[in-house]
Each structure stands twice: as C-alpha cells, then as structure tokens.
Simulated scan of single mutants.
Amino acid sequence: MPRHDASELAIRLGREAEAVCRHYLSSGHRAGRYWLVGDVRNTPGRSMFVRLTGPESGKGAAGKWSDMATGEHGDLLDVIREALGLADFKDVAEEARRFLALPHPEPAKTRAPTDSTSGAAPGSPEASRRLFAMAQPIHGTLAAIYLNRRAITTLEGTTALRYHPRCYYRPNEHAPTEIRPAMVAAVTDLTGHQTGAHRTWLAPDGSGKAPVETPRRAMGDLLGHAVRFGTADEVLAAGEGIETVLSPRQVLPRMPMLAALSAAHLAAILFPPSLRRLYVLRDRDPAGDGARDRLAARAADLGIEAVSLMPREGDFNDDLRRHGADALGAALKDQLHPEDVRRFMEG
C-alpha cells in the first residue's frame, strides 16, 4: 500500500479513536484523554495509552499509542493488525476500511459537552481544575481520617491534596451518577500548572476506600505529570500511589516527592532540568518492574543517578503500618545516599 494511503487511513481512524479502541481494545477503558489497556493485543491492564484527542498527524496525534512497559508505539493501524493477528497489510487496510464504513456513536465527551458541577468538558484539564478548586483543604476532614488510618499522620506540605464531601461517581457509562466523599489530588506539570486530578472515593466513616469497583480514578492530562509534594531541585523521590509516596514522607518530610498514580505513568514522568538523583520508590510488584526499569534507564540517559528504594513488605505503606515510622526511617537510611541522609533526615 502506498505510504500516503496508509497515512490517510491512520488519520481517518484517529478521528474515530475512541470507537476504534472500544471495538479492538475492549479490555481497556477511557481515562480522561486516553484509552488505557494492557497492550496492543488487548490484554487487560493499564500500561498502554492511546491518545483519543489531538491533531490529525505528527506529535500527539489522535490514535497514537505507547506501551510504557515495553516501549512499543504506533498508530491505530497497528492496533488493528495486532488485535486481529493480521500478517498482510492489505488485510489490515481492508479491515480498517470496513470499520470506517460502519456508523459509530459519538464519544461520551461529545454527547455530554459539560459537567454539571464544573461547566467544563468531563475529563478535561479544565474540569479537573474546577473540581480541585471546589474541594476544601484536607486538614480535619474525612480524607485526613482516611490517611491517619493508614498511619499517615504528618500532612505538612500536602497542599496537592483536598477533600470533596460530594464528589460525583459513576460506576459505568450506563449507570446513574452517585455522590460520595472523596480525596482529590491535583496533578501538575513541572511548572506547577494543574493538568489533571485524581479522586479516591472514601467510605462514609473514612475507614477505607469506598466499596465500589473502581474507587480511584484520574482525569485530565496525566502523561508525564504527577501529584507533587514539595518542589524538586537536585533530588526527587518518585513512586506510584499517593499513600505509597506519603509513607516515606513521614520520615523524610523535606525530601521532594511525587506520585505518578500508576507504574506506566511512573515510567513517563518528566524530570526537572536540575535533577541529579532520582529515588524510585518501588513496590514488590513484578508487573510494574518493567516500567520502573524504563524510568531508571531514561534517567541514566540524562545523567541522572537512579536509586531504587525497596520496601520490606508489599509497599512502603505496608511497611509504615506494620513496622512503624522508626523502623521505616532506619530501613530508608540504609538505602539513601549519605549526603541525602544528612540533608533530609538529620538536623
């Protein structure tokens, strides 16, 4: 097939990116401007990101995808080829034309252009900013009780976290919207500009997460960005979950840290230009090892020293809850660079 014909097909598929993903990557789901799935062969998971919006071609085009666990990337023609196991490109093109000839419903974002709570497109960066603005400081709220129950009691420097007592939760696109309390986290870029938000819906008494299928969800523009605690300069610690990151902060409150919200997002975080040492807060989770190894490799390519910090249990919050802050501090001290022990743990 001539290259211009393939490019035109990819562009046309990109205009229907969400419909393509729902059809060929049905194991995944939409999260803000992306479709998340395990890989291009439609395995369940969250390491592959497909852009649902963007320009028709070039960098950031709609339909472009990357797998943070393997480094694979491509367009929606590759999705069709891999999902169906097609070897000959003429068969891929024939399938693409067949799909494009079908009627496709407009994606949810177009059908419902505004969010009743914010006046902005659901899942957009603007909606995330308005949600965070409507939330209240975390101190003395149900969100603080939730964190306290997880042994996270020192909340200084956590302005990225807020509490919303009546945050919308929709189990799926066919179910009615529910109202539940939630901890809301701001996702920001390197300049501090908010690009997204993360919600953790809570049990009514703050004893844990809400008893729903997906108590954690993100919205907005997430790739490369994170929930940040402190401003990074030369040293930064990065992990997946908010509680995982807040746990070592109980004994390292002055060390800048960020929560990338997933292993795949952790692999894609952007580095401050002055960064020279990156601590990677690992979970004992083999599924995320590939993404974290890619992060370390990216750091090394830029001359940044990458140091892995390993918990005794499943993650650092498990360590904090089971062994206490003193034991966690002692374990971290053995893994930190001596200069950072003096800077962040002593004095």
Rank of each mutant, 00 (worst) to 15 (best):
Q194M: 14
P113Q: 05
T53N: 11
L142G: 01
T114W: 10
R199E: 07
E95A: 14
R282V: 00
D78H: 13
Y34N: 15
R129N: 06
G32E: 12
V184L: 14
L270K: 06
A186Q: 07
A160Q: 12
L281N: 00
W65V: 12
P125S: 08
R81H: 05
R249I: 09
A10T: 11
R166A: 05
Q250Y: 13
A330T: 10
L36R: 15
G290P: 08
R149A: 10
L77T: 09
G241M: 03
W65D: 13
I179P: 03
S247Y: 04
G54D: 13
A267T: 02
G157Y: 10
D315H: 04
Y279T: 00
S118E: 02
P273T: 01
A186C: 11
R98H: 12
S247L: 07
W201E: 01
M255G: 05
R277D: 00
R343M: 00
L332H: 02
L100P: 15
D289A: 05
L9E: 11
T177C: 04
R15M: 14
L155E: 09
I242K: 08
E16C: 13
R228C: 14
L77V: 06
R322G: 09
A69Q: 08
R322H: 06
G45T: 08
P273I: 01
G60K: 12
G324N: 10
K90E: 15
F344V: 06
V184Q: 11
L147S: 02
D205M: 01
F89G: 09
H164M: 02
Y34T: 13
A264I: 10
L336E: 00
R12Q: 15
V280M: 12
L332S: 01
R298K: 06
G140T: 04
F271P: 00
I152T: 04
H174G: 10
L147I: 05
G54Q: 13
A135G: 04
T153P: 13
G196S: 12
D315L: 08
D67V: 03
T114L: 09
E156F: 13
P256S: 03
A62T: 09
T214W: 09
T43A: 15
W201Y: 06
